[in-house]
Every structure is written in C-alpha cells, then in structure tokens.
Simulated assay, not measured.
Amino acid sequence: MTVEIRRGTSAFVEREPGRLSRHGFSFGPHYDPENLRLGPLVCHDDHLLARGRGFETHRHSGLVIVTYVVSGALDHDGPTGRVTVPAGSLAVLRTGPGVEHAEVAAVAQTRFVQAWLTDDDADDVTPSYEVLDPGTVSVEPLTGMRLEVRRLGDHETTTLPAAPRVHGYVARGALLRFSLAEPLAEGDAFRFVDEPAHEVTAAVPSTLLLWSFA
C-alpha cells in the first residue's frame, strides 16, 4: 500500500500569453523519471485560459482524453466539428489511431482539468468526441477506468473509492486534515495504490475529481 501527496506548488508550470498550465506528471521538457504515470494515466493538467487562447490544431493518437471544465466555456474543434463545452461538463475524446483537434477558450477565465489515458485498442477505435450533460457526475471512458466528480458542501464528508489505483484532485475548495494527509488545497492531488477506502471532509464547498483504476 502506498500513498503519495502531490501539492499544487510542485506541479510543472508552463506560461504563455493568455495561458497558464500546471502539469501533474512529467510533460514535454519537464521530465521527472519518478513521476511519469499512474497506471494508464499519463497526463493530468490544469489549464487557465484567456478568451481566444488555448491549443490550436494539433494531433493525438492512442489516447482517450477526458476534460472537465471548471469555469468558463471551452470551444473544441475535432471529429464532430465545433462543440462548446460549458462549465461543470465532462467531455471525452477518443483519438483512435490518430485525430486532429483544437481547444480554445470561448470566454475569459476558462479553466479546465484534463487527463490522458493510454488506449491499447486505439487502432480499432473510430475517433469521436462526446460532451456529457453538465449534471453528469461520472464516466467510464475505458473498461476498468472511472472518473467521478464529487461536489461537496461545507464540511461535507465523502468516502474515496477503494480500488487498486486511485488519483484524486482538488479542483476547487479544500479538504480538512484526514488520516493520510495534512489539509489539501485547490490544485493538490493524491495517489493511492492498494489502499482501502478513506473518508475526506471538505473545509469549504469543494469539487474533487477522482480517478479509479481496476
């Protein structure tokens, strides 16, 4: 059993005009051989964009990319044309063997958290992009992989998933001290391997993004 706490202050930071990105895992020039992945999760980023800024057309292959829009709205151009993803929504891009797409902020102060998952069957997948209803609180983009969006009220308690591997991220708010960590703030993450279920309590209204992997 292992527990790793990753503070937001330790994220790899990338700044460009109109964009601030924080990378939770090794990414591009930010290389850390001890922070490459957690099972199929190879990228976990938090992006803040000015209106009209973001990522122009680029290519991906062999991945499933899951996006949660924290605030603002994100314009996505890809295999289904242009789609606007509003705050509170989940979106799933299946790249298959290869697809081009673009992600640009539709309004100012657009913030989204994005995870990349390796897909061993990508060569047999037709590229697609799906935006789920804003009220959707979970998605299973691949067999044995699940993302839950937990929205907690002030001092509300929730039980974390019990799974072989768990990745948790405080997208908004903060958690009180619990059995495995000091208080966690917005942007902090935790990674569990073979841990039992644990309870956490929100210090203020909070949003948690919880990945579990079989």
Rank of each mutant, 00 (worst) to 15 (best):
E16W: 10
G88L: 04
T201A: 00
C43T: 13
V113C: 11
A202D: 07
P97M: 06
P134C: 02
S128K: 02
V64F: 03
D32R: 11
P205L: 05
D32I: 01
R22V: 05
H155F: 04
G24L: 13
R53G: 06
E100C: 11
F190T: 07
L210N: 14
T2M: 09
A122D: 08
G8R: 13
A105L: 02
A102I: 03
V166L: 08
V166C: 12
V85S: 03
A73V: 05
T126H: 06
D120T: 09
L48W: 11
G187A: 09
E130F: 06
A163Y: 11
S26M: 10
G135R: 14
T159Q: 08
L49D: 09
E186M: 05
G173K: 11
S10L: 07
R7G: 01
T67E: 06
F27G: 01
G98N: 03
D121F: 09
A202Y: 10
L48N: 12
H76Y: 15
D45W: 02
E100W: 11
L93D: 04
R51I: 07
R53Y: 13
R22E: 08
A171W: 03
Y169L: 08
S138W: 12
A108T: 02
V70G: 08
E148S: 15
V137Y: 07
G144V: 10
R150K: 14
V200D: 09
R151K: 09
N35T: 05
L184T: 02
A102S: 15
T110H: 04
E156P: 13
L132G: 03
L90E: 00
A202L: 08
E34W: 06
V69T: 12
D123S: 08
P127T: 00
Y31T: 01
R7D: 09
L160K: 05
G28K: 11
D133Y: 03
A171K: 06
F190W: 15
D154E: 15
F192I: 01
T95N: 03
R15A: 01
H47A: 10
E34T: 08
H23W: 13
